[in-house]
Design a protein around this nucleic acid. Sequence first.
RNA 1: GCCCCCAUCGUCUAGCGGCCUAGGACGUGGCCCUCUCAAGGCCAAGACGGGGGUUCGAGUCCCCCUGGGGGCACCA
Length: 529
Amino acid sequence: MRLQGNATMSVRTRFAPSPTGYLHIGGVRTALFNWLFTRRHGGQFILRIDDTDVERNRPEALRPILDGFRWLGIMWDEGPEVGGPHAPYFQSQRLPLYQEAARKLVLAGQAYPCLATKEELETERRAAELAKRPYIHRGKGRNLSPEEALQLWQEKQLPLRLKVPLGRKIVLDDLIRKRVEWETDLLGDPVILRSDGTPLYNFATVVDDIAMKITHVIRAAEHLSNTPLQILIFEALGASLPAFAHVPVVNEPGSKKKLSKRDMKKFVTPEVRAKLRALGYTDAEIDSRDDLNPATVAYYQELGYLPQALVNYLGRLGWSLDGYSEIIPLETMIAHFSFERVNDAPASFDPDKLYWMAGEYMRQLSVEEKVWGVVPYLVRAKLITEPVDEATRHKIRRIVEACGDRLKLFSDILTYGAFFFRDPEYDESAFAKRVAKQGIPELLERFISVLERTEPFAPENLETVLREFCDRENVKAADLIHAVRVSTTGITVGPGLFDILAILGREESIRRIRLALARVQTPVQTGRN
RNA sequence: GCCCCCAUCGUCUAGCGGCCUAGGACGUGGCCCUCUCAAGGCCAAGACGGGGGUUCGAGUCCCCCUGGGGGCACCA
């Protein structure tokens, strides 16, 4: 058995995102597993920014990633903005470290400058392809003495390759995959340092993991095939191996394909677009922002999902506590997280289940907490203005209470409660069906005079009064209720009608019913329906 | 093409040789409750990819096939 971490050392894990401008759902799930494992064992979780690829490196693109983690409560013990004993935590600022490590390898005869030109490499590759042979590059420089190699490397701007030992078997005892083996003969000599002196991923990763004393490398399964090379680099650098855990990838909803970072725009379905529009986004904004789609954390934050719901959902995606638990408090997750219970197979992301879970967490919140979460949505929709005065706050409190379990996301307040803050926007088909109908306007007319003297103007009493009125009129209560609902709210969905009326108050309720009645007499062209 | 990984309801999963007539959850359908929509209650449909072994006995262990995925860069 190879060394699989040292029990006496504290657990140190890391997540190394590239600054891409958004926090990807798949990535954050991997980060969460790192974090849970680390918290479980009382270690340190490190955030290291993988910005060696200058093409992808945009400094402002880091912000959304840090914000996303903070929103979820996944706090890093070392990394950007918090620092730590192994700073800097940006790979672009650690170049001398990689060069020094590379120099060490050359001196030890473990790495050599690549003498082949790009053209030669291309020819080799094509020949291998034609011969249906795997393409394995072994540079001519392999046989250089360390001194020659060093001199050549320093004189000319040559890329550096790792000298992969021949005829060896690499054995990995992965914490999730169990034993995986590779033959070194099937591995080409990889470039570890570009001709411009910048490191390649596999090299920088290992140099940093050694420097930062990482004990457990927990990463997506797509990195499994990088592992033999990295193991070789660990060895060449004379470092002991960390333990590895390759977590299965996250697949697209209902698919067997990896939830890719490319082409995320395709997740912006008409439904998603409608949701974003309801929040006030224009189509142009939706199309221009690549962080606003269901494959990113920002999207869920934007829609008002509770972060703890997303954490619970992601934690359960590929990991289970037992055969039946779904809603798992974070402390429980931390206390029980282990790789033994991580499923080997990829897991598809299921937005429906996440939505359900969001509702489960929302109902655990106090009214006051819900009010707090809902206010920004009302402000953004220009239904209220800040600062929120006490009267408005009280009204929101009552609305939130009336909405009850209907509120699964904070943004749901706009579906169920917008009409409280503005005149009804009438749903034409509902209006035709429930208000502009034989006998209904007259009935509403008479009901208004009942409302005028209803005292107290409170839910329970309103219900009694309405039902008694319907008995006298010999009409079904449901018909009047629907008519009043559509008249006062414009729509067919929402809280109980009597709660609505009580919140609106006598005057406003009556005013709105009159609004609807006027509308029956002089139909307006709305263009809808 | 080569290397590596994976395989239970549509989806997330339980299952670590007999407790399986394969359990739970999301979703779906139906019914109930009901002023609508949610929520809630009840019920239903729904899976061990195929073939060989091993064993008294296989969803569970082994092999092959098939299918899916990932990787084979001076990307990460």
